[in-house]
Design a protein around this nucleic acid. Structure first.
Length: 598
RNA sequence: GUCCCCAUCGUCUAGUUCGGCCAAGGACACCGCCCUUUCACGGCGGCGACGGGGGUUCAAAUCCCCCUGGGGACGCCA
């Protein structure tokens, strides 16, 4: 399952406890800001008493409409509901961020970019530096292997890399790790690029492909050999496997025993061989991890890794090192599953004479059943969420909250994330993927989205149900009635069905509400409606009149609803009628009445 | 098995870096109530956690140690 590694396609996992040395990224300004934010409520309140549990801050200055939209996705949104729960200081910050021209200079607010177009990040530099220089020399990267789709864990790895780079004004590079010719496919490359673009995870440079760099790898491999830092190994796969089994049986850590390490130079002549790295047998290698502090490895625990295969192709650990070094990656941020690779890579950096980047390993995302995300039990492909009708804003918002937090804030736009993100607030323990929360966020973003936009997005989902709809004012109106009751576009399309065709009434609902005594009432309403001049304006009164004529408290709403929609749950009755239009309403009323056996 | 990482409500997390402001805050889910022509939305309330044991300290969710539990890595995959 190589596509599922934290490096790129990866899942992620691990919690906290770091030696001070590891916490290099301390940004005083940020902390100061947080402190200020925490003091906000009391400072702003006349009584300065702690707010009782459950009480809300003043919301008189609440502004509900913000049409500027979720940056990063170019989708207009209203003010997030969490707005009302924000501390005053946060509100101010929020407000400022949204002011045109305020802190927006230079940065291309997550605009969707055509693939492959290098986006040299900020320009003008009109922003005051927030923490550190706006333009910094930080370079991060996402390096998936194109063996499948874009994996959820990989997407988060990519996101964190992007966010970290942006938060410090650095650069984010996309690199495709296609050394595995057997399994790498152009379709997979496409899928990864599409997935990232859909999510709004845009890269500043690339994609670069490793296969284009073969010569470099060979050259560096030869250099290691020449310098005596590597050796040829003629052990066959079968021999290796057998030895590994033996070691496992002896309860040892299975690893290469180094028997070819000191072979006489001529001894490997004419035999197929690989190149192995001479790992020091003594001493320690320490990884200074940005999130975990110093992690110390005994070199004796490390393997003599093969870095050039029999066929001359380089292996992962070798290639990443060369690529990261030659691309000037300053921060290698990836899933926890790579932590144990890191000392080997550190040794390689040293042997090759490259400057060491900083490393940061964040915890993996676990599946709903615990353990790493598995294809079997969990939906791991970004595409599948797209197809189920999730919005990219919701996905990204959900992913960023898996492992990262900013106080009590739950809703983040891409812009906010880029501003607020910091490595010190990335947790260390793995998190479980939780569909309910994703659904909740999706529902939120659907509610906030511009109906016209949703209408466009909804069309393919309607098509999937055999409904040939086109974006129109009518569709938008229909969407508007469904906004608050749909958690995904798929759900919305499902509920929208009765707007397009009369559905057979649900038997239970029909039995309960479409009773013989109700039939004449439905007919009477139909008659009243067909006589109206202005249906939209008078339908409520007309219904009232019929009810009065029928005397008192006749429960007629549910029967009408069932007649119109086929079910007992729908938007407001009159909303539905307005969408359907008078003729269709009359038709369905009569139809329902006719189907009732007297 | 060996090595490495991790440990706050069922879940995601705030709080841990500088121990006191935490009888632990928010969100999802769940349960009530209110709103209501249904379903939702929304509002209000409830349930619910510092894994255990030792230290250090006037004071520990926060610092140290051990245990337990969870996860990851051990490839001519990435």
């Amino acid at each position: 399952m190589p596509g599922a590694r934290g490096e790129g396609g990866g899942r992620d996992r691990g919690r906290r406890r770091a030696s001070p040395a590891g916490r290099q990224l301390r940004h005083v300004p940020l902390r100061a800001r947080r402190r200020r934010a925490n003091e906000g409520p009391d400072g702003d309140r006349p009584d300065a008493r702690p707010r009782p549990r459950g009480a809300l801050p003043d919301r008189s200055n609440r502004a509900d409409l913000d049409v500027r939209g979720v940056a990063g996705h170019g989708r207009p949104l209203r003010r997030p509901p969490s707005w009302r729960n924000l501390r005053p200081s946060d509100k101010i910050r929020h407000f400022r961020r949204r002011q045109p021209g305020f802190r927006t200079g230079g940065r291309i607010r997550g605009a969707r970019l055509p693939l492959r177009r290098p986006l040299s990040v900020p320009s003008a530099g009109t922003d005051p530096p927030k923490r550190g220089p706006r333009m910094s020399d930080v370079v991060t990267r996402f390096a998936p292997s194109p063996t499948g789709y874009l994996h959820i864990g990989g997407a988060r790895t990519a996101l964190f890399n992007l966010l970290y780079a942006r938060s410090v004004g650095g650069k984010f590079i996309l690199r495709i790790e296609d050394t595995d010719q057997e399994r790498s496919t152009p379709e997979a490359v496409r899928a990864i690029l599409d997935g990232m673009t859909w999510l709004g995870i845009t890269w500043d440079e690339g994609p670069h492909f490793q296969m284009e760099r073969m010569d470099l790898y060979r050259k560096e491999a030869e250099r290691l050999l020449r310098e005596g830092k590597a050796y040829r190994c003629v052990c066959t796969k079968e021999e290796l496997d057998a030895r590994r089994e033996e070691m496992a049986a002896r309860k040892e850590k299975p690893r290469y025993d180094g028997r070819c390490r000191d072979l006489a130079p001529g001894a490997t002549e004419g035999k197929p061989s690989v190149l192995r790295f001479k790992t020091p047998r003594t001493g320690q290698t320490v990884v200074h991890d940005l999130l975990r502090g110093d992690v110390v490895y005994e070199n004796a625990e490390l393997d003599d890794l093969v870095f050039l295969r029999t066929d001359g192709s380089p292996t992962y650990n070798f290639v990443v090192v060369i690529d990261d070094a030659s691309m000037g990656i300053t921060h290698v941020l990836r899933g926890d599953d790579h932590l144990n690779n890191t000392p080997k890579q550190v040794l390689l950096y040293e042997a090759l004479g490259y400057p060491l980047p900083r490393f940061g390993h964040f915890p993996l995302i676990h599946g709903m059943e615990g353990g790493k995300l598995s294809k079997r039990q969990d939906d791991v492909s970004v595409t599948s969420y797209r197809e189920k009708g999730f919005l990219p804003e919701a996905m990204v918002n959900y992913l960023v909250r898996l492992g990262w937090g900013h106080g009590d804030q739950e809703i983040f736009s891409m812009v906010e994330m880029q501003d607020l993100f910091s490595l010190e607030h990335v947790g260390k323990s793995p998190s479980k993927f939780n569909l309910d929360k994703l659904l909740h966020l999706n529902a939120h973003y659907i509610k906030m989205a511009e109906p016209s936009l949703l209408a466009n997005l909804l069309v393919p989902f309607l098509a999937k149900r055999g409904i040939d709809a086109k974006p129109s004012p009518w569709l938008i109106a229909a969407v508007r009635t469904l906004l608050e009751r749909s958690r995904t576009l798929e759900e919305m399309a499902e509920s929208a069905e009765y707007y397009f065709r009369a559905k057979p009434a649900d038997p239970k609902a029909a039995a309960k509400f479409l009773t013989p005594e109700i039939a004449p009432v439905l007919l009477e309403i139909a008659e009243a409606y067909s006589a109206l001049d202005d249906f939209d304006a008078d339908m409520e009164d007309a219904l009232k009149e019929v009810m009065e004529r029928r005397g008192g408290n006749l429960k007629i709403h549910q029967p009408i609803r069932v007649a119109l929609t086929g079910g007992t749950a729908s938007p407001g009755l009159f909303e539905v009628m307005r969408i359907l239009g008078r003729d269709e309403v009359v038709r369905r009323l009569r139809g329902a009445a006719g189907r009732i056996d007297a």
